[in-house]
């Protein structure tokens, strides 16, 4: 479980996050939703320590993350997997090497075991015959999926996805959503997903935190979200004509 206690984040004078309080549960898919520019990515980066919040704290199973000694931080991080909005694959390595990289660094696996693990992870995201290609040779969606495979490699306990299905077609997007749910339930990971994809919100959101201009406006789940009376949230989810029609 990850608890976020009164987190505020500034960039210079500008306050991006305002006193965020929420928690992300183990074995569940936890969504952070909100419009573009609302602060989802910044919040996620505060969670994993890429940004340090000026106020408040982040607790991993009760342990405060930002005050940990570097050694403990690094250790905890070997239990994290993160998929960045732009995939962030290592350009200089092939896809196979990218996925094997965390295994190289942190396990004593033999080459055979590593290859099996890499193939398994790539299969999970429905990528075949790409092991020897470089990231530049892949499409945007394939890069995203390769990045997911890399995040899965070390069996993480905490998984972070920053817009995993932006830039994917509806079918692949569905596949990724299913995959995220499956991994979370099979391995009991604490999964946190940034998204503004309505489909994901309705289908995989076991807990949902809605961020509006840096404020946490609403928390709930995929069942309660359609009947909420928060004005900003309704604006957000019923923005698309299709959803409006469903509501009627």
């Amino acid at each position: 479980m990850i608890e976020v206690c009164s987190v505020s984040k500034y960039f210079g004078e500008k306050q991006i996050l305002h006193n965020i309080n929420t928690q992300f549960e183990e074995g569940k898919v936890n969504l952070i939703i909100g419009r573009s520019g609302s602060g989802k990515t910044v919040l996620m980066k505060c969670l994993v320590g890429l940004h340090s919040p000026e106020e408040g704290k982040v607790l991993y199973s009760g342990r405060e993350f930002h005050n940990m000694p570097d050694i403990d931080k690094q250790k905890l991080r070997t239990e994290m997997g993160m998929v960045f909005q732009g995939a962030a694959l290592f350009d200089s390595m092939t896809i196979g090497e990218n996925v094997a990289f965390p295994l190289d660094m942190f396990t004593q696996m033999s080459d055979g075991e590593k290859n099996d693990r890499v193939d398994f992870c790539l299969e999970c995201v429905d990528l075949q015959n790409v092991n020897s290609l470089y990231p530049a040779e892949l499409s945007g969606g394939m890069k995203k999926r390769a990045a997911i495979a890399r995040a899965l490699a070390c069996n993480p306990k905490y998984l972070f996805f920053d817009e995993p299905n932006s830039g994917l077609d509806p079918k692949t997007s569905l596949l990724i959503d299913e995959l995220i749910t499956k991994i979370t339930h099979d391995f009991n990971t604490t999964t946190i997903v940034n998204t503004h994809d309505m489909n994901s919100i309705i289908t995989i959101g076991e807990t949902i935190s809605f961020i509006y201009q840096g404020f946490l406006e609403w928390t709930g789940n995929s069942h309660t979200i359609l009947s909420s009376d928060n004005h900003n949230l309704n604006d957000f989810i019923f923005a698309q004509p299709l959803v409006q029609r469903i509501k009627k």
């Binding site: 994993v48 890429l50 991080r77 994290m80 997997g81 960045f84 290592f90 660094m105 942190f106």
Partner: peptide, 8 residues
């Protein structure tokens, strides 16, 4: 950032 997250 990706390296950092991996604990490297």
């Amino acid at each position: 950032d990706a390296l950092e997250i991996m604990g490297i």
